[in-house]
Simulated assay, not measured.
Amino acid sequence: MNCPYCTASTTRKRTKKTELSYTTFFCSACRRTFNERTGTLFNYLEAPTDVVFLVVLWRLRYKLSLRDVAEMFLERGCVFTHETVRDWEARFAPLVADKTAW
């Protein structure tokens, strides 16, 4: 993986993982540590990427309300509000819509 800061290819995989179990890397050129999400739209999310995509996909595909989606994931142990669903939809719906054809 190339470093998102200096674009060097001299990176090493570290054994330490993030709280959400994402792989971390170390760049020997700029001496920075980063993970799989660094430099992407998903960088500061506090939820796993697959959960966010599933929320947005269900919201777009099945026309569920914001509160319905939040409640469905609450039953599965993922706690977030309908406002979070709205933010994720605004941020990631174009990515999901580009990759799926209905």
Rank of each mutant, 00 (worst) to 15 (best):
C27F: 08
M72H: 10
L95S: 08
D87R: 15
R91Q: 15
T7V: 08
E89C: 07
F25W: 15
L66S: 05
Y62T: 04
A8M: 01
F42V: 04
K13R: 14
R12K: 13
A70H: 00
F25A: 07
L66T: 05
S21M: 12
T24W: 03
T100L: 15
V55Y: 00
C27G: 03
P4Q: 07
F53R: 10
C78M: 09
F80N: 05
V55E: 02
L60Q: 07
G77H: 01
R86N: 11
H82P: 00
E36T: 11
D87V: 14
K17D: 09
N35C: 12
P4H: 02
R32E: 14
A29P: 07
A90P: 02
A29C: 09
T10M: 09
A8R: 11
R67K: 11
R37I: 02
H82C: 05
L95E: 12
C78I: 11
V55F: 01
L66A: 03
P94G: 04
L66G: 02
V56H: 00
L64T: 08
L95W: 10
E83N: 11
V69H: 00
W88A: 04
T7C: 07
F42G: 01
A101Y: 12
V52Y: 05
L66Y: 15
F53P: 00
M72Q: 13
Y5D: 03
L54H: 09
H82K: 10
E75S: 06
E89F: 10
L41D: 11
A101K: 14
K16C: 03
G77L: 01
R12P: 05
V56P: 00
R91F: 09
F26W: 12
K63H: 08
P94M: 03
V51Y: 02
T10V: 03
W58R: 15
T38V: 08
R14G: 02
A93G: 03
F34N: 06
F25N: 10
R61Y: 01
K13F: 07
K16W: 01
E19G: 12
Y22T: 03
G39C: 07
D98L: 14
T11H: 04
L20C: 02
E36K: 05
W88E: 06
Y22P: 02
L74T: 09
P4I: 00
V51M: 07
